[in-house]
Amino acid sequence: MKRFVFVLGCLFLMPCPLAQAQSKSRLLQHFEAALLAIDTPPPPSFWTRHGEEGMLALFEIASDPRRPLPLRRRAARALAHFRSESARQALRALLDASDEVLARFVLRALVEVEHERAVPLLRTIIESGKPFLRRAAIEDLLYLFRITPAKDHLRALLRDLAIPHADPALRIQIEKALASRPTHAAPRE
Protein backbone atom coordinates (compact mmCIF):
# COMPACT_ATOMS: atom_id res chain seq x y z
CA MET A 1 0.00 0.00 0.00
CA LYS A 2 2.80 2.35 0.96
CA ARG A 3 4.51 1.57 -2.32
CA PHE A 4 1.29 2.28 -4.20
CA VAL A 5 0.87 5.62 -2.47
CA PHE A 6 4.49 6.48 -3.22
CA VAL A 7 4.11 5.66 -6.92
CA LEU A 8 0.87 7.60 -7.08
CA GLY A 9 2.54 10.51 -5.36
CA CYS A 10 5.40 10.42 -7.80
CA LEU A 11 3.00 10.38 -10.74
CA PHE A 12 1.20 13.36 -9.22
CA LEU A 13 4.37 15.33 -8.66
CA MET A 14 6.15 14.42 -11.88
CA PRO A 15 4.46 16.89 -14.23
CA CYS A 16 5.73 19.91 -12.32
CA PRO A 17 9.45 19.44 -12.88
CA LEU A 18 8.69 18.17 -16.37
CA ALA A 19 6.68 21.26 -17.19
CA GLN A 20 9.42 23.42 -15.75
CA ALA A 21 12.00 21.65 -17.86
CA GLN A 22 9.86 22.05 -20.96
CA SER A 23 9.34 25.72 -20.24
CA LYS A 24 13.06 26.23 -19.74
CA SER A 25 13.84 24.32 -22.90
CA ARG A 26 11.38 26.46 -24.86
CA LEU A 27 12.93 29.63 -23.47
CA LEU A 28 16.40 28.47 -24.43
CA GLN A 29 15.27 27.68 -27.97
CA HIS A 30 13.48 30.99 -28.15
CA PHE A 31 16.59 32.88 -27.03
CA GLU A 32 18.91 30.93 -29.30
CA ALA A 33 16.76 31.81 -32.32
CA ALA A 34 16.77 35.50 -31.40
CA LEU A 35 20.54 35.48 -30.97
CA LEU A 36 20.80 34.68 -34.67
CA ALA A 37 19.43 38.09 -35.76
CA ILE A 38 21.43 39.31 -38.76
CA ASP A 39 21.74 42.98 -38.02
CA THR A 40 19.03 44.11 -35.65
CA PRO A 41 19.03 42.44 -32.24
CA PRO A 42 15.76 42.21 -30.32
CA PRO A 43 15.12 45.09 -27.91
CA PRO A 44 16.43 44.75 -24.32
CA SER A 45 12.90 44.10 -23.07
CA PHE A 46 12.83 40.89 -25.10
CA TRP A 47 15.39 39.42 -22.69
CA THR A 48 14.50 41.21 -19.49
CA ARG A 49 10.76 40.53 -19.57
CA HIS A 50 11.55 36.97 -18.49
CA GLY A 51 13.25 38.27 -15.35
CA GLU A 52 15.64 36.02 -13.49
CA GLU A 53 14.64 33.07 -15.65
CA GLY A 54 15.72 34.97 -18.74
CA MET A 55 19.02 35.93 -17.17
CA LEU A 56 19.69 32.31 -16.21
CA ALA A 57 18.83 31.11 -19.72
CA LEU A 58 21.33 33.55 -21.25
CA PHE A 59 23.91 32.50 -18.67
CA GLU A 60 23.33 28.86 -19.54
CA ILE A 61 23.87 29.55 -23.24
CA ALA A 62 26.95 31.69 -22.60
CA SER A 63 28.58 29.23 -20.23
CA ASP A 64 27.93 25.99 -22.11
CA PRO A 65 31.13 24.97 -23.94
CA ARG A 66 29.13 22.54 -26.12
CA ARG A 67 27.21 25.39 -27.69
CA PRO A 68 28.60 27.24 -30.75
CA LEU A 69 30.81 30.20 -29.94
CA PRO A 70 28.80 32.88 -31.76
CA LEU A 71 25.75 32.01 -29.66
CA ARG A 72 27.77 32.08 -26.45
CA ARG A 73 29.36 35.41 -27.36
CA ARG A 74 26.04 37.08 -28.12
CA ALA A 75 24.38 35.59 -25.06
CA ALA A 76 27.14 36.99 -22.86
CA ARG A 77 26.79 40.40 -24.45
CA ALA A 78 23.00 40.32 -23.97
CA LEU A 79 23.50 39.72 -20.23
CA ALA A 80 24.39 43.41 -20.02
CA HIS A 81 20.68 44.20 -20.36
CA PHE A 82 20.12 42.80 -16.86
CA ARG A 83 21.25 45.34 -14.31
CA SER A 84 20.84 42.96 -11.37
CA GLU A 85 23.27 41.64 -8.82
CA SER A 86 22.74 38.09 -10.11
CA ALA A 87 23.61 39.21 -13.66
CA ARG A 88 26.75 40.82 -12.28
CA GLN A 89 27.70 37.58 -10.57
CA ALA A 90 26.94 35.56 -13.70
CA LEU A 91 29.20 37.78 -15.77
CA ARG A 92 31.98 37.57 -13.19
CA ALA A 93 31.70 33.78 -13.38
CA LEU A 94 32.11 33.94 -17.16
CA LEU A 95 35.25 36.06 -17.09
CA ASP A 96 37.57 33.06 -17.23
CA ALA A 97 36.20 31.91 -20.59
CA SER A 98 38.89 30.44 -22.76
CA ASP A 99 37.58 32.06 -25.94
CA GLU A 100 39.14 35.50 -26.05
CA VAL A 101 36.24 37.13 -27.88
CA LEU A 102 33.76 35.73 -25.37
CA ALA A 103 35.93 37.01 -22.52
CA ARG A 104 36.08 40.46 -24.13
CA PHE A 105 32.31 40.60 -24.54
CA VAL A 106 31.84 39.46 -20.94
CA LEU A 107 34.15 42.20 -19.72
CA ARG A 108 32.34 44.90 -21.71
CA ALA A 109 28.97 43.62 -20.49
CA LEU A 110 30.28 43.69 -16.93
CA VAL A 111 31.46 47.27 -17.34
CA GLU A 112 28.05 48.26 -18.68
CA VAL A 113 26.38 46.64 -15.68
CA GLU A 114 28.80 47.84 -13.00
CA HIS A 115 30.02 51.14 -14.46
CA GLU A 116 32.67 52.58 -12.17
CA ARG A 117 32.41 49.66 -9.77
CA ALA A 118 34.28 47.68 -12.44
CA VAL A 119 37.36 49.91 -12.24
CA PRO A 120 39.27 47.79 -9.67
CA LEU A 121 38.73 44.72 -11.85
CA LEU A 122 39.93 46.57 -14.95
CA ARG A 123 42.94 47.78 -13.04
CA THR A 124 43.84 44.24 -11.96
CA ILE A 125 43.47 42.92 -15.51
CA ILE A 126 45.60 45.71 -16.98
CA GLU A 127 48.30 45.10 -14.38
CA SER A 128 48.43 41.34 -14.57
CA GLY A 129 45.82 39.89 -16.91
CA LYS A 130 46.15 37.82 -20.08
CA PRO A 131 47.34 39.98 -23.00
CA PHE A 132 44.08 39.81 -24.97
CA LEU A 133 42.03 40.66 -21.91
CA ARG A 134 44.43 43.43 -20.96
CA ARG A 135 43.77 45.14 -24.26
CA ALA A 136 40.03 44.75 -23.73
CA ALA A 137 40.34 46.19 -20.22
CA ILE A 138 42.14 49.26 -21.55
CA GLU A 139 39.43 49.74 -24.18
CA ASP A 140 36.78 49.38 -21.48
CA LEU A 141 38.52 51.91 -19.26
CA LEU A 142 38.49 54.29 -22.21
CA TYR A 143 34.81 53.53 -22.75
CA LEU A 144 34.10 54.34 -19.09
CA PHE A 145 36.12 57.54 -19.39
CA ARG A 146 33.99 58.64 -22.32
CA ILE A 147 30.66 58.08 -20.58
CA THR A 148 31.52 59.12 -17.03
CA PRO A 149 30.76 62.68 -15.92
CA ALA A 150 33.35 62.90 -13.12
CA LYS A 151 36.35 61.42 -14.77
CA ASP A 152 39.47 62.71 -13.04
CA HIS A 153 40.34 59.39 -11.43
CA LEU A 154 39.81 57.61 -14.76
CA ARG A 155 41.99 60.18 -16.48
CA ALA A 156 44.81 59.38 -14.08
CA LEU A 157 44.36 55.65 -14.60
CA LEU A 158 44.44 56.02 -18.37
CA ARG A 159 47.53 58.18 -18.24
CA ASP A 160 49.54 56.23 -15.70
CA LEU A 161 48.32 52.68 -16.13
CA ALA A 162 46.77 52.21 -19.56
CA ILE A 163 49.15 54.10 -21.83
CA PRO A 164 52.23 52.10 -20.81
CA HIS A 165 50.38 48.88 -21.71
CA ALA A 166 48.70 50.10 -24.90
CA ASP A 167 49.58 49.39 -28.55
CA PRO A 168 49.86 52.34 -30.98
CA ALA A 169 46.21 52.33 -32.03
CA LEU A 170 44.98 52.30 -28.45
CA ARG A 171 47.58 54.82 -27.31
CA ILE A 172 46.43 57.29 -29.95
CA GLN A 173 42.81 56.84 -28.89
CA ILE A 174 43.70 57.37 -25.23
CA GLU A 175 45.81 60.43 -25.94
CA LYS A 176 43.00 61.97 -27.97
CA ALA A 177 40.55 61.29 -25.18
CA LEU A 178 42.88 62.73 -22.54
CA ALA A 179 43.46 65.83 -24.63
CA SER A 180 39.77 66.54 -24.62
CA ARG A 181 38.03 68.67 -22.04
CA PRO A 182 35.81 66.94 -19.53
CA THR A 183 32.24 66.37 -20.62
CA HIS A 184 29.14 66.25 -18.54
CA ALA A 185 27.39 63.61 -20.60
CA ALA A 186 25.40 61.16 -18.56
CA PRO A 187 26.14 57.46 -18.85
CA ARG A 188 23.97 55.79 -21.42
CA GLU A 189 21.82 53.03 -20.06
Binding site: R146, I172, T183
Partner: peptide, 15 residues
Protein backbone atom coordinates in the same frame (compact mmCIF):
# COMPACT_ATOMS: atom_id res chain seq x y z
CA UNK B 1 22.15 65.70 -29.11
CA UNK B 2 24.28 63.41 -27.01
CA UNK B 3 26.76 62.88 -29.79
CA UNK B 4 26.90 66.54 -30.66
CA UNK B 5 27.39 67.38 -27.03
CA UNK B 6 30.29 65.01 -26.85
CA UNK B 7 31.88 66.55 -29.91
CA UNK B 8 31.10 70.13 -28.94
CA UNK B 9 32.90 69.56 -25.70
CA UNK B 10 35.84 68.23 -27.63
CA UNK B 11 35.61 64.68 -26.44
CA UNK B 12 37.46 61.88 -28.11
CA UNK B 13 37.02 61.77 -31.84
CA UNK B 14 37.33 58.58 -33.87
CA UNK B 15 40.87 57.78 -34.82
Amino acid sequence: CYRVHMRAEGDAAPD
